[in-house]
């Protein structure tokens, strides 16, 4: 189910402004890859190009190549909607649909696409996804209550359940814990460790301890200078990046000498 992502020579623009410059990397299946770096260095922007979500912003465009196994994500006949069904996304702020119940939120991917599914199958999918997101025990008695009534951490796990219910190959997470308390953060981190058995996971985080705890591979992004585009500085095994980074910039960042 999990797939490999191969990026080569990717540049991202907002209008005339170049936000990210010349990124090449390979993201292995069934692993957790963390993006770290200071604010505004383009890691979230880069993450959003992987499932073509950045196109939602007017004026945003991309040069370069993103391959999902052997398919070109930016190929001429590729439907971005199909890409997003294959590469799911969890956002910084939990965003369950306020008009829907917990149950409907989980199957939103099918429901919003007007797919009909038998009640038993839907029940099964809801339970499986909520169990997958470690939320089933907490909400199984109130599936018909609104999703917005859950706590922040539960809402975020609901969003993860919603994302895995469409059965993507890759799961992108854009600072999924930055709005959560430490206990909810721990719950999400445990969940990430469990999810990586089946999915390719890419996570953007500002929390270096979190990157060290959850990821197998870490990529460090930095700005070339104020007003200049962000670049990929170094990428490698997480414990290598955090103990013996090759580049001086990386060492400065992880030891807290700047950023």
């Amino acid at each position: 189910m999990a797939k490999r992502i191969d990026v080569s020579g990717l540049h991202v623009f907002y209008g005339d402004f170049k936000a990210v410059e010349d990124v090449s990397m390979t993201i292995e299946p069934r692993s957790v890859t963390a993006f770290i770096g200071s604010s505004g260095c383009g890691k979230s922007t880069f993450l959003r190009t992987l499932n073509r979500m950045h196109e939602v912003t007017p004026g945003a465009r991309v040069q370069g190549k993103v391959m999902l196994d052997d398919q070109d994500v930016y190929g001429p006949d590729v439907d971005p909607v199909a890409v997003r069904r294959e590469i799911g996304m969890v956002f910084q702020r939990p965003n369950p649909f306020p008009t829907m119940s917990i149950y409907d939120n989980v199957i939103a991917g099918a429901k919003l696409n007007n797919q009909r599914m038998p009640k038993a199958k839907a029940d099964d999918l809801v339970e499986r996804s909520l169990r997958g997101a470690n939320l089933w025990e907490e909400v199984k008695d109130r599936l018909t209550r609104p999703g917005a009534g859950l706590s922040g951490g539960q809402q975020q796990r609901l969003c993860i359940a919603r994302a895995i219910a469409v059965e993507p190959a890759v799961l992108l997470m854009d600072e999924p814990c930055s709005a959560l308390d430490p206990i909810s953060t721990l719950a999400i981190e445990d969940l990430i460790a469990k999810l990586k058995e089946n999915y390719t996971i890419v996570i953007v985080t500002h929390n270096m301890q979190q990157a060290a705890r959850v990821s197998d591979v870490t990529a460090f992004f930095n700005l070339a200078g104020t007003g200049k585009p962000g670049r990929l500085i170094e990428m490698g095994e997480t414990n290598k990046i955090f103990t013996k980074p090759e580049k001086k910039e990386t060492e400065n960042y992880i030891t807290g000498r700047f950023g």
Binding site: N51, M53, V56, V81, A82, R84, R85, E86, G88, M89, F91, R93, N95, P96, F97, P98, T99, A108, G109, K111, L112, N113, N114, C159, R162, A163, V166
Partner: peptide, 23 residues
């Protein structure tokens, strides 16, 4: 309507017109 809801819907692979109608 918060933009996050539109993005959440797009990220689930829902086309734009269905996002408008259903979200």
């Amino acid at each position: 309507v918060p933009n996050e809801l539109r993005e959440a819907s797009y990220a689930l692979g829902v086309p734009k017109w269905l996002t408008v109608v259903k979200v």
